[in-house]
Design a protein around this nucleic acid. Structure first.
Lengths: 208, 208
DNA sequence: AACACCATGTTCACACCGTATACAAGGCAC
DNA sequence: GTGCCTTGTATACGGTGTGAACATGGTGTT
């Protein structure tokens, strides 16, 4: 009996915990990921989690990895929707815009997951992700877009240096201001306008 | 007897709690501000805090207000150190740079306080600050610097619109990347270089 | 000067949390 | 079938924030 609900063994508790974590963190963010509340929502004893995670932090990181994966997927989908027939320069700029606006849009529409995703960005614990997607950090999309701009001739190699941090700063800054900061709760239209303004200004500054 | 150490009444518990909060949050950030640990470090019973704060969150916000005050003071000091004999345009740009770099420098050198200061930026609870300084949110310095640039003619009124959010995004973004994100732990010199790059690029983009 | 009041700090109590340790229930290899 | 090994359970401990009742001592009133 593989999926008997009343089986002594749960079957795939680890995945169940991560899924429940995503559901709970969606509203409530990282502090909604209590070990007890999490196991309770799966219908299992608190200590059962310790068979799959060293401690609460490890469980949170596993959920965070999946959240970061979803951020990457959101950006990739926007990149995939770019029409391919434009000229290379325009296309490269368009790619950078989509990476940036995708990052911001994800943060605003899923602030709980965004908080988790950013939490992952230091301790690069190589934990397994739940989905089978080959994992690509969102960071990589930014690098690719900037390299594409250099290749297309819209960004000099000189100004390419450290440009990823300049872009990421502006993009992450507006995202953080909109999710945790003074821009919290503003209309999506206002945020979108400010986001576009940040991205355009940074782009203009890079090309000078 | 005003300051008898063994007096039944503490004297000024509220201030003492906020000061202890600043001391504890300096390393350890906001989650080091446990109500019990805080009252313990002052030498008083946990529930004594409830005579001065509604709950733990109110106490944290009071500490956060003071942290934001120190951020403002740090920026003001840098603004005060600007030589006044330069021409207005150069001076206005210099002011914006000092506001930006002061924000970033404070974040990097006092990450715990910075975390608190940013936490304050939404719920504008009008709690009293500990110091007697007339309180000016750091935000105001940014507005003044940008208005100064318009007045000096280095920024068109058209590009002035929403420029505070563009600047704040870049500045806060690099600060967050350096304190909570992937830039965590890097050498101060590297952070300084990246910070200058962010500020310069944003400035260039604004002036286009 | 005596008294009542009130602000302030204490004591006790409760529910919750993360986690350690010991135990039990099944699945698997031989 | 028998023994092991993985997985979930039971119990317990120290930590947390918070509420209610109580004690203390300064302050204003008569």
């Amino acid at each position: 009996m593989i999926s008997d609900a009343h089986s002594y063994h749960h079957g795939d508790l680890r995945s169940a915990l991560v899924e429940a974590g995503l559901r709970l963190a969606r509203d409530g963010g990282v502090n909604a990921l209590g070990l007890r509340e999490l196991t309770r929502s799966v219908g299992v004893t608190p200590n059962a989690a310790y068979r799959h995670f060293a401690d609460r932090q490890a469980l949170v990181l596993a959920v965070a990895a999946e959240a970061q994966n979803r951020l990457a997927r959101a950006i990739r989908e926007r990149l995939g929707a770019i029409p391919g027939d434009a000229d290379p320069a325009e296309r490269a700029v368009h790619q950078l815009r989509e990476v940036s606006l995708g990052y911001i849009h994800f943060a605003v529409s899923e602030p709980g997951w965004f908080e988790l995703a950013f939490l992952m960005q230091d301790e690069s614990r190589g934990d397994e992700c739940v989905t089978i997607d080959d994992y690509v950090p969102p960071y990589q999309f930014l690098l690719d877009a900037l390299d594409g701009m250099v290749h297309a001739g819209v960004l000099t190699p000189e100004r390419r240096a450290d440009a990823e941090w300049v872009c990421w700063s502006g993009v992450h800054g507006i995202a953080d201001l909109a999710t945790r900061g003074p821009l919290q709760g503003l209309d999506r239209s206002v945020i979108d306008m400010l986001a576009a303004r940040v991205v355009d200004t940074t782009l203009a500054g890079l090309r000078t």
